[in-house]
Amino acid sequence: MVTVTALEEELLRLAGSVPDPELPTLTLEDLGVVRAVHARGTDAVEVELTPTYTGCPAVETMSRDIERVLHEHGMREVVVRTVLTPAWSTDDITAEGRRKLQEFGIAPPRPNRPQASGPVAVRLGPTHTVAGSPEPDGPVCCPHCGSAETELLSRFSSTACKALRRCLTCREPFDHFKEL
């Protein structure tokens, strides 16, 4: 068990409060991408950041923003290290993060089904969901009107982490943060 000092707790809170550069309503804490902070003495710190997607271009901005915030809070030396293991999953998005996504007009990811072991079990569902669908993941609901009847338009949307869908009830297109 690693002990987390009061200073580290404070630094973790600060790093987590940085807004996501692409979805500024969400913080890095909401996204679950700040993995840990390790204080080195009283004024140096190392932050572990994990990317949502391997090629996520926002990682560099996130790192710079974390550095700036921690410098402003008296840290002389801030090192942000990118870690890939364990791989980030949409299950790392907090309940608060999901609520904010929904509010922002983005359908939050559905929970991934638990895996016994082993790394891979992405199963891609059907393109069209309806209420009470036999799909174990449940439907992707429209963030505008709440309807469960929605269809997939494209597996890739404005960013790699989102898919483009359309609501069949209110006809509005919307982004869906797809399960990873």
């Binding site: 391997t54 890939l84 791989a87 999953s89 790394p119 891979v120 992405v122 790699a160 990873l180």
Partner: peptide, 8 residues
Amino acid sequence: LAAKAVKE
């Protein structure tokens, strides 16, 4: 890397 990329 493989564990992460395979999901993409």
